[in-house]
Write a protein that binds this DNA or RNA. Sequence first.
RNA 1: GGGCCCGUAGCUUAGACAGGUAGAGCAUCUGGCUUUUAACCAGAGGGUCAGGGGUUCGAAUCCCCUCGGGCCCGCCA
Length: 498
Amino acid sequence: MKRMHWVDAVVKDQVGAQTVSTGISPSGPIHLGNLREIITGDLLNRGCKDKGLQSKLIYLADDMDPLRKKYPFLPEEYELQVGKPLRNIPSPDGKGTYSEYFLSPFLKSAGELGIFPEAIRAGDLYRDGKMGEIIRVTIVNREKIRNIIEKVSGRELEKNWFPYNPVCSSCGRINTTVGLELKGDLVEYKCKCGNSGDANIFTEDGKLPWRIEWPAKWKILGVTIEPFGKDHGTVGGSYDTGKVIAEEIFDYPAPLPLMFERILLKGKGAMHSSTGIVIPASEILSFCPPEIVRFLMARVPSTRHIEFDPGMGFLSLMDEYQRMIKEQKEEESRLIELTIPVKGKAQKILDYRHMATLVQIYSDARKLVDVLKRTGIDATTEEVSKLMKLARHWIDNYAPDTFKFSILPAKQDVAISEVEREIISDFVAWASKTDSTWEATEIHNAIHNIIKAHGTEPSEGFKAFYKILIGKERGPRLGFFLSAMDRKTVIERLRYVI
RNA sequence: GGGCCCGUAGCUUAGACAGGUAGAGCAUCUGGCUUUUAACCAGAGGGUCAGGGGUUCGAAUCCCCUCGGGCCCGCCA
């Protein structure tokens, strides 16, 4: 029986036009875990489209949310910004707002993944008055809503609970005010700072609390499908209360929920901005080709957690991807479709593992293209230079030490045995001959013959070269490696040691 | 206190949502090979699918219970 991809299984009963919504509070670097949210949204969006439905993806930035605390990555003076809406706080780099500072690189990363959502700032919805009427409905029905939240979530709300949080006109904070009463379009409030005033519900003077804001946005934006992290999905959590509020108060059917699990960093645990265990989305894309990020998310159901290993495990992931693309198995055709960032575009990806070695020998992309051509791999300079950049970054930051090497200086002493000295010496003699070609296979054959002539185990003989050239016992394919280096340099180096 | 995910070969795991002979990679062993950043080729062994019960002609898969590991909620979002 043909298996259905989880994406198609999730949307199989959806009918009519779809709006898939995801979003985040842009309070810090947006990381790989958050990337799962938007990729999941994109996958569902594609699932709907591929099934023939009209569908779009929106990404909601909750920039009216307050800064909860001065995160470790923020300078001291941000202590003063705590409690203010993110969109009203200056950016750490001094340009623009705090929320855009984190949001815009993220949207750029999403673009690299082939995801171009309609990005909506919650603050704009308030500013443009789109939330006004539903805020009024909320305040008018506040007792009913209070009952729903208390009943569904099992928690008790404060006596003076008011379902609208005004921004204080004096201190700018949104978490120190309490609404008192709605008069016309104005909510009277007072703030802990001593100030009191009126907030206009048709402006960005304030916001709904999360548990109400969420269902309100479903209705305002016509959301039909919403993936969210497991923190929202717990029983009595905000999806549960939101669903009842949407249906009973706002008269709007709750969207199809899809909970997704967290992404753990191998050996470190769950990603959290606060704990510093984080790989920002942009950072991932500086060593990981975009299709691999999609592959990572699309291959397993969203309800499973993913353990991401940026080290050796990452290379295995690359291998698996390449195998999939090469084999083009029927049962993986849907996964391939969903993995590819730009639909319909065939994927060719150069061997990352190979590139991670090459990048340690070459720094010039054009030269590398020639070398690849010699070994029968055809690639454009652009492709090569792109992958080189990724592989270089991976080597510098994530590769295990066993994978790294650097060529030793010409005049560095290395202890070698007598047999090793003879082998190297014979090789130098061979390499110095004017008629011998400096080509990978030739070099390899020459070395092998010399080692054999000395009656030494091949592994022992090869070791000598690695010790001298890179100071390690193992290394990249010798013939290939040496042919990539300048012949004179190699001879000089070997001569120095013998 | 409540919830979610996971438990399949020594290790990593696919297969579970839609029941139909448990499959792969690594490791191991055998043979081949002019060894290479976890080499390649051919082959072999290796499994009470965590445990127990139920449904069914048939269960890794569906239902219930138990155990073990991870995570989330019970502030805010």
